[in-house]
Design a protein around this nucleic acid. Structure first.
Lengths: 340, 340
DNA sequence: CGGTCCCTTTGCAACGTTGCAAGACTTCGG
DNA sequence: CCGAAGTCTTGCAACGTTGCAAAGGGACCG
């Protein structure tokens, strides 16, 4: 029942294949009674256009790809949800894939399978640098999320990571913290997000006259809760442990908070914690998590705008570099020191 | 550079289109030097097969659809991650869509756009009942997640919700709780999951000789943290509030825990909490969350097995009803009463 | 009444791929 | 040296759709 073609419908309705196609595509010049007859036949046979054929003919699939390192990471799944919703308004369907941040797999998606299906790609790279991206970007419209390539490889959307990190750190300084750690360095990745956040963190400390201390800058293998917890535990072994920590994402922060509590510390009395991403968990955790909230809805919408422009053939050259807004959301985890 | 066809490659290599196709598809009888020449041309032109054409010709797309109510709900995003990974092993790509649980949209996905692209569908319905599902299931292989249709509409995968709810409730009873509430009834949905968990909950109470009390059974509009928090607040206004609560998913539980703390209660001393799904947040929350953990990996793998069987033409008739295992993971939130 | 224009319908070709079956050439056994 | 059984290569057609261009028919204008 699902594999009826225009030919079948045409036979039933007693018209040509082309006329049925005209009805399906809402071509205006179709006689009312013909249209009615065709529509009856369409209904009767439960006709659905074969999208492969249509795609082949039109050269468009109506699919866009979202390629992220981890779809089950709350930040990415929230972005994915927004993107799917925003795509619907443009009658686009979203194909989601995850790379695990593996460069080889990222390259494969960029050049390979996904590229054949989709009209455009929204891509959040971890492992690939600008050079690799350029080669993959040749074929189809590409929007990068969260990576500051700044060299015009492709359209690019991100928050101002340095400014955001500055705000987060200054907030901690302003609430009286003296010894502020950072969790989330990822020197092994070509992705620059962590580097930029670190830059903002260091700049704030310097501006406030705090001594810089590399012991307080903790690198992690991944951005998950266990990594945050492990980082916190290592910080607590220091002779002079921190009284605040800026985590480069919320999952690290939640893990760090948990580890701090397990060690008998009270958050925020003994330790203030700030995260990044504003995932939903942080709003309901105990204590609730102070965090930098990127405008995820804007990220999704602007990404689709970029794709649409490329697909329409406008602006085929210069790459855009879009900065979406963010704001620091102060919650319990960074309350005043000393008081419970 | 990305729109080179077999014809272009054939011209460069000085062979027929068909021979190039043979090389691409690893047809064994190709002379070594011909193969070398063709492969050089493929490389040179950076040939990628046009998947729309291949799909049209073969009648297969290599895409499977995952349709869930909310992709940003941790449970669904974790299942999605597993599914994408498992699909990779079969060289399938996953197309993700979300319906918001809206029956109209669920029907649209089932009958409409997605169905044209994909070879099979993994579907987690909220709004559609068995009757609607049957009509949509005609065309393509379909696997249902989490819905106990039990009438052979389509293959179906779920945990034993009743048994799991019994275990959760018995655990609370066994740890000395007397007045156990339930949060998560959804009488407005045709989805039966909540009904089954309620059934298990009631059965346990009955078996233990606890009086049943409808005041303790709280319905929710959605399964999110705010709903759990609101439900908890309403429970706390009762003349005789509960000393334990079984939440039908972890998000409700996390919201409920948060609301309980805000009201000055200590979890687990004053209130024990058990959730369902074992999302990662619950492992690192404070206190960590006791929960029923379904085997999500098995869900993904078995779902793909079902699709593969249908696609291979085996077992075209009888629908499978697969029960995946689960286990109760006891953490801090349901520790002994009375002690902090 | 002839010509022009518009409305409606249609046939043909093409998108890039692969199934089919036959053709060209080689090898081998008798 | 012939026939059979391979190995290798190819042309043709088809998948279902839509762009193009033209044909048939009616209405309207001069």
């Amino acid at each position: 029942m699902g594999d009826m073609s225009l030919k079948d419908v045409a036979a039933i309705a007693g018209v040509s294949v082309r006329t049925v196609s005209n009805v399906v595509n809402r071509f205006p010049h179709v006689a009312p009674d013909t249209r009615a007859r065709v529509e009856r036949a369409l209904e009767q046979l439960n006709y659905r256009p074969n999208l492969a054929a249509r795609n082949l003919r039109r050269g468009r699939s109506g699919l866009i790809g979202l390629v992220v390192p981890e779809i089950d990471s709350p930040y990415f799944s929230e972005v994915a949800a927004h993107l799917v919703l925003a795509a619907e308004e443009r009658s686009w369907t979203v194909l989601v894939d995850q790379t695990g941040g593996d460069p080889a797999r990222e390259r494969a998606f960029l050049e390979g399978a996904a590229a054949g299906f989709v009209d455009g790609l929204v891509f959040s790279p971890w492992g690939l640098g600008a050079a690799d991206l350029r080669r993959g970007a040749e074929d189809i419209p590409l929007v990068l999320l969260g990576e500051r390539t700044s060299d015009g490889v492709a359209d690019h959307i991100a928050v101002d990571n340095v400014a955001a990190a500055v705000e987060a750190t200054e907030h901690l300084i302003g609430s009286g913290r003296r010894r502020i750690a950072a969790i989330g360095l990822q020197p092994h990745l070509t992705n620059e997000t962590a580097r930029l956040r670190l830059e903002g963190y260091r700049a704030s400390l310097r501006a406030a006259g705090h001594p810089s201390d590399e012991q307080l800058e903790i690198r992690v293998a991944a951005l998950h809760r266990p990594d945050g917890a492990a980082a916190m535990r290592s910080l607590l072994t220091l002779p002079e442990p921190p009284d605040a920590v800026f985590c480069f994402n919320d999952q690290l922060a939640l893990g760090a908070m948990r580890a701090a509590r397990d060690a008998g510390l009270d958050v925020p009395r003994d330790l203030a914690v700030v995260g990044f991403d504003d995932i939903e968990d942080g709003r309901y955790s105990f204590p609730s998590l102070t965090t930098v909230s990127p405008d995820k809805w804007a990220i999704a919408v602007r990404a689709l705008e970029c794709l649409a422009e490329r697909l329409d053939g406008k602006r085929s050259e210069s790459a855009r570099d879009i900065v979406v807004s963010h704001r620091l959301i102060v919650r319990e985890s960074s309350g005043p020191a000393g008081s419970p």
